[in-house]
Design a protein around this nucleic acid. Sequence first.
DNA 1: AAAATTGGTGTACGGTGTACGCCTTTCAAG
DNA 2: CTTGAAAGGCGTACACCGTACACCAATTTT
Lengths: 222, 222
Amino acid sequence: MAGSGQVRRPRLNRHLVLTEAVAFADANGVGALSMRRLAQQLGVAPMALYKHVTSKDDMLDGMLALLLEDVRETPSTGQWREDLRRRILATRSALIEHPWSQEVLSSRRQMTAAMLDHLDGLVGAMLQGGLPVDLTHHTMHVLGNRMWGFNPELFAATPASDPSFEVQRSALPLRHRHLAEIAAGVDHGAIGVETSRMHDDFEFNFALNLILDGIEEFRNAD
Amino acid sequence: MAGSGQVRRPRLNRHLVLTEAVAFADANGVGALSMRRLAQQLGVAPMALYKHVTSKDDMLDGMLALLLEDVRETPSTGQWREDLRRRILATRSALIEHPWSQEVLSSRRQMTAAMLDHLDGLVGAMLQGGLPVDLTHHTMHVLGNRMWGFNPELFAATPASDPSFEVQRSALPLRHRHLAEIAAGVDHGAIGVETSRMHDDFEFNFALNLILDGIEEFRNAD
DNA sequence: AAAATTGGTGTACGGTGTACGCCTTTCAAG
DNA sequence: CTTGAAAGGCGTACACCGTACACCAATTTT
């Protein structure tokens, strides 16, 4: 009596649109994400989305905000180095799970409230851990967009312009001998996908520790 | 006799297209740069460009390559720290003069030959200066996209989503108290545009030195 | 039950990148 | 100088994009 036999798509709302957009970008890349295609996936007319999102840019901002929400629940220990490290690593994890986020992030022209919230959380971790204001300020700058979990993968990339891929690949040590030299230092035996991810993680932590150590030492010097 | 009285636009070539595209992006932003508009500015039909550029992406890659070319002429001293610093600062200068470059750079999915050349130059500076291969490798990772001259400007940005700008601005210390706290540390008196640029330069150098010092210390520890 | 708000649709406009075929200019070889 | 080939440039056309606007349908409020 109560429910009708007819199954109907639930009404849209902002959260639903954003989560579906994230899923779509995860599956097909953000380049393939258009309002029309997303609407189709939701079984809805393109313009229906605009009742929950003021523009595509607004939608992209909302998608990022969704990712950053998860990071904000990182627990605090009261030790600035540990807290900062945890938050940054949590961000990195979130963004790596959604590779499109880095591209979107770097295309935003304005800080959104969600991004400011996130940055405020980082600053708060340092100040509450006793780091002086000026050093905290410097640290934010030093971390740069490392705090966004982003770091270009140097050796995963190959030149796209040259169609003769094999030739280019074998010619790389000649043209870019220095790059080849340090790449060889990593490549003990065949290096797989999973090990390259481990390598990236290692480098990320190395860099993070270097920076945190540098800041710490700076503080002690005062 | 020799020259006709009729003044004619010189023939297009790749370099001319790219330099004009750079000029257009400098003046109007890369968002306004479309093949049609660029063609119009060159007094040419849109499809004429495709005789010198295989696609818009190819054109954007070419524009970046143009900027990176200038950097490659940085002279060497044989001292890795100084050489590296010079190259990175030269890159930063080049990219700051063309703000659109950062957006384009971060939207590229593949390394181009020009980018690899640039990275190879950085690695070469370190190796020729006597830095061990593994530390050179680490350094490249630590520098991350700082070597691209890019660093998000935290305090220049304001939330775009909220239409009530004034309210948001005055409410910022409440919602983002930590951010406000470190921002206040900089804001001795009214801070102008030119001083904010000086501040960014200072922070950039602070970070760069921190990293280079950290690497140096790491080397001495071995 | 009536009114008002919200959600969803259909159409249309001005933009985009670029494939394809054709014409014109320039240059090289005879 | 003539001639043929190659390269440069043009016009049209297509599929796609974001989204303004007017309208209808569903839901909630009165």
